[in-house]
Simulated assay, not measured.
Amino acid sequence: MVWPAFTGHTGASLPCLLRTLTGVPCPVCGMTTAAVALVRGEAGTAFAANPLIFGLAALALAAVPLVVLRATGVLKPPEPWSPSRRRWAGWLFGLLALASWLFQLHRLGVGWAS
């Protein structure tokens, strides 16, 4: 919520380092734009910039009550994940990153994805 106010007053922004150096967007290109748009209530703009922002926002919102409930002792500490669950999560996050990257390549008209 601070970032939109800061960028609105100063005009400052953070360029994507990979895109600046190579012209190729990274899987999280557009995430800052999407977050700012979501905070401003512009869901369509947020989705167009990077749809992953909705999952990230949901995780951030869910984390707050979990941290509070665990800190107060209402919930027990989390159990470590098994190796198979960690492997499954790794594949899931890898596929999400690949899908996001393909979306960014298409959105920005880079190479064969356009």
Rank of each mutant, 00 (worst) to 15 (best):
37 A>F: 12
46 A>Q: 04
92 L>M: 10
101 W>I: 05
79 E>H: 13
72 T>P: 06
99 A>C: 13
57 A>D: 03
79 E>A: 14
35 A>K: 01
27 P>R: 13
65 P>R: 01
18 L>Y: 00
83 P>L: 07
57 A>N: 04
51 P>Y: 11
105 L>Q: 01
102 L>S: 15
59 L>C: 03
17 L>S: 07
91 W>M: 10
19 R>A: 11
20 T>Q: 13
53 I>W: 04
72 T>Q: 10
18 L>M: 12
66 L>Y: 15
4 P>C: 05
71 A>N: 08
90 G>S: 14
2 V>G: 04
34 A>L: 11
114 S>G: 15
37 A>L: 02
85 R>Q: 13
58 A>S: 14
15 P>G: 00
98 L>A: 15
45 T>G: 10
99 A>F: 11
105 L>Y: 07
69 L>N: 10
98 L>E: 07
14 L>P: 03
88 W>T: 10
39 V>L: 10
91 W>A: 08
14 L>D: 01
88 W>D: 12
23 G>P: 05
32 T>S: 14
101 W>D: 08
4 P>Y: 08
89 A>I: 14
17 L>K: 04
50 N>W: 01
33 T>E: 14
11 G>Y: 01
73 G>L: 09
61 L>R: 07
110 V>C: 09
52 L>Q: 12
73 G>D: 05
31 M>R: 04
53 I>N: 06
103 F>H: 03
88 W>M: 14
17 L>C: 04
110 V>E: 11
104 Q>K: 10
110 V>K: 06
32 T>G: 09
44 G>S: 04
8 G>T: 12
45 T>H: 08
66 L>D: 13
90 G>I: 10
3 W>P: 00
46 A>R: 03
112 W>P: 09
48 A>R: 15
57 A>H: 02
29 C>S: 03
69 L>G: 08
99 A>G: 09
61 L>V: 15
34 A>W: 02
113 A>N: 09
73 G>K: 03
11 G>Q: 06
37 A>I: 06
96 L>V: 14
99 A>H: 00
57 A>V: 04
81 W>N: 05
38 L>C: 05
19 R>P: 05
22 T>D: 08
60 A>T: 13
39 V>Q: 12
47 F>D: 00
64 V>E: 11
33 T>K: 06
41 G>Q: 02
20 T>D: 12
71 A>Y: 01
75 L>W: 04
77 P>G: 00
19 R>I: 00
96 L>Y: 14
12 A>I: 09
81 W>Q: 12
84 S>Y: 10
41 G>L: 08
5 A>T: 13
97 A>H: 02
82 S>I: 01
69 L>H: 09
7 T>I: 14
81 W>E: 12
17 L>Q: 07
78 P>W: 01
64 V>A: 15
3 W>V: 13
80 P>N: 12
89 A>Y: 11
56 L>R: 05
24 V>A: 06
47 F>Q: 14
107 R>H: 02
104 Q>C: 05
3 W>T: 00
